[in-house]
């Protein structure tokens, strides 16, 4: 299946991924090629096959609901682009 540049722009927006306008055509070509490759999967019937999400087929391990780590907010925020009073700063979302 082939994608259009509009499709690619829409997918890029869904992924919140900036793409230079001059590169859209080559991404469209690459993605169409990848989807052609992926379409080879339809060459076999898999109706009665159970999907395999994970190689070990294990159940999710649980642990007791106990505090096991100290709060390290300052430590983690020391590498953040912008913080104030212990909060991560982003552009204004609400007026």
């Amino acid at each position: 299946m082939s994608l259009t540049t509009d499709d690619v722009n829409k997918i890029a927006y869904l992924a919140r991924l900036g793409i230079n306008a001059k590169d859209t055509a080559s991404y469209t070509e690459n993605l169409s090629d990848m989807l052609k490759l992926v379409e080879q999967m339809s060459s076999i019937d898999t109706d009665n096959v159970t999907p395999m999400a994970h190689p070990l087929d294990t159940i999710q391990r649980l642990r007791p609901d106990k505090i096991i780590e100290d709060n390290q907010r300052d430590h983690f925020q020391s590498i953040a682009p912008q913080t104030e009073e212990g909060l991560y700063l982003v552009p204004k979302v609400l007026d």
């Binding site: 690619v8 997918i11 869904l14 919140r16 991924l17 991404y27 993605l31 982003v90 552009p91 979302v93």
Partner: peptide, 27 residues
């Protein structure tokens, strides 16, 4: 705004191959 922050930070930070795979995965 927030969208611009996400879109440009990710657009500037990731290279071409990573972008290809994020796009295919999103699709």
């Amino acid at each position: 705004d927030l969208n611009d922050l996400y879109i440009r930070s990710r657009g500037e930070g990731f290279g071409t191959e990573v972008k290809r795979r994020i796009l295919v995965g999103t699709y």
